[in-house]
């Protein structure tokens, strides 16, 4: 499954009501480290079906960024049953991303 782009409107359905853990990647077009993280997340999403990976553009979805207190990107927030269970700020390799989902 590929990384899905989500926005304020479909966040509840795609993330909060999801039937498996969701890794939310908060990013922006102008953010270099975010661009490097993108392919890593794409690779994980292709390999695993026990986790859903979604991408939120913080410029287009300011309310979401504010709701989740995003002050630096890339920021990965792991959400399970609608609740945040883990987060990481900054570029990390694939193994470290996978450790967040464990």
């Amino acid at each position: 499954m590929a990384v899905i782009k989500v926005n304020q409107a479909d966040f509840e359905n795609e993330v909060l009501k999801a039937d498996k853990p969701v890794l939310v990647d908060f990013n922006a077009d102008w953010c270099g480290p975010c661009k490097m993280l993108g392919p890593v997340l794409e690779e994980i999403s292709e390999q695993r079906d026990d986790v859903k990976i979604v991408s939120v553009n913080v410029d287009d979805n300011r309310e979401l960024a504010e709701k989740y207190d995003i002050y630096s990107i890339p920021c990965i927030v792991v959400i399970k049953n609608g609740e945040e269970v883990n987060r990481h700020v900054g570029l990390i390799p694939k193994s470290a991303v996978e450790a967040l989902i464990k």
């Binding site: 102008w30 270099g32 480290p33 661009k35 490097m36 993280l37 890593v40 900054g90 570029l91 990390i92 390799p93």
Partner: peptide, 27 residues
């Protein structure tokens, strides 16, 4: 490499002083 390739330069929006590159992003 500990994080991702590129190092500090990936935070640069524009590079204008590298020979042969008029303007290129760090990424």
């Amino acid at each position: 490499e500990a994080s991702g390739y590129g190092g500090q330069i990936i935070k640069a929006a524009e590079i204008r002083n590298y020979p042969t590159e008029k303007n290129i992003s760090g990424v």
